[in-house]
Amino acid sequence: MKTPIRTLFGILGLAASALATGAHAAPQHTDAERLARGRYLIVAAGCNDCHTPGYAPSGGQVPDQQWLTGDVVGFQGPWGTSYPSNLRLSLSRLDEQQWLSRARSPMLPPMPAPSLKAMTDDDLLAIYAFIRSLGASGEPAPTAAAPGVQVTTPYIEFTPKNLPQQQAALTH
């Protein structure tokens, strides 16, 4: 029979071993669970609204196989005109660590959305796995245009109108 001290050291040894081998990390998920979580996060975060042509106007009635191929509809504001990238092509060229780095890096508006910034590495890796499972497809999105450069594609203007400061200045 072990003494309480030996038992305590045994428990501490197991705990140290678990920490050293990464057993304290996030629970491992099956591939199917990871893909389902990635799909869910893409829908919940609204990724398709911009990165899937026709998704928002159709109320989300676009088959998964057409998701995340980018769009020619740009977003124009003080930064110029940016376009929703073809995530399927982009992620096909990145490994997991490159994706995590890219997802955490500054991007042109309207990205990164606050939902992307709030995600854990495990969330982002689930998204990565789901997008990679779809396979590379489609064409690259148009290149962003600098401020003042005319574009020939459709775009959504992201310039606030009727801000309170402007309204106050007009009444004085």
Rank of each mutant, 00 (worst) to 15 (best):
F130T: 01
L12N: 02
Q76D: 08
P27K: 10
H24Q: 15
H29D: 12
I131F: 11
G10S: 11
C47N: 05
Y55N: 08
A126S: 14
F9N: 09
K161Q: 13
H51T: 03
L87D: 08
T69P: 00
A32T: 03
D64Y: 01
Q165K: 06
L125I: 01
E157T: 05
T3V: 01
V149N: 11
T81Q: 11
R132K: 15
R104F: 12
P84D: 11
A44D: 13
P78M: 13
D49Q: 05
L170M: 14
P78I: 13
G10T: 10
D31C: 02
A136Y: 07
A15K: 00
L14E: 14
A145Y: 06
V149I: 14
G148N: 08
E139W: 01
T30L: 03
Y128I: 03
L124G: 02
P106F: 12
P142A: 12
K117T: 09
F75G: 03
P114G: 01
Q165C: 05
R132L: 15
S137G: 10
S105F: 06
F9V: 10
L19Y: 11
A32P: 00
Q65Y: 06
W99S: 14
Q165Y: 10
I5V: 13
L91R: 07
P4W: 14
A25I: 04
L116N: 05
V151M: 04
P4N: 09
R39M: 02
V62Y: 04
T81M: 14
I156V: 12
G60R: 03
Q28R: 08
G80R: 00
E33I: 01
T52I: 00
G60H: 05
I11W: 15
V62S: 02
T159I: 07
A36Q: 09
S105E: 11
A169T: 04
A141E: 08
S82N: 06
Q65E: 13
G138Q: 07
G59I: 06
Q97V: 05
N86P: 00
K117I: 10
L35P: 01
T81P: 03
I5F: 14
R6M: 13
Y55W: 15
T152V: 07
V149G: 10
L87F: 10
F158S: 06
I131K: 05
S92P: 00
I11L: 15
G54W: 10
L41F: 14
Y40K: 11
P53Y: 08
H172C: 02
S58G: 07
S115T: 09
R104C: 13
F9Y: 12
